[in-house]
Amino acid sequence: MPALRNARTEALRSAPPDSWVALSDDETHVVAVGRTYEEVVAASDNAGITDPIIVKTPVVWSSFSV
């Protein structure tokens, strides 16, 4: 579990800020990136990943108080 956790965390850390990313089913790899939700879905489809998990990345990774 720690390895998966670290892989997920590092995948998100390496993703472009303020963007939309598609994660692999095990959430350890970014399989597509887009400026919008629709862009990342299209990129994910082009990569052959039809059931990704989509994450919106913030401008900076910081603690949330929402």
Binding site: W20, A22, T36, Y37, E38, V41, S44, D51, P52, I53, I54, V55, K56, F64, V66
Partner: peptide
């Protein structure tokens, strides 16, 4: 939509989603 991650926020009055969705 495809599955996307959403944060549980009991302090928020209602659900809020990004306009891109």
């Amino acid at each position: 939509t495809k599955r996307f991650e959403a944060l549980l926020d009991s302090g928020a009055s209602r659900c809020v989603f990004h306009a891109s969705l």
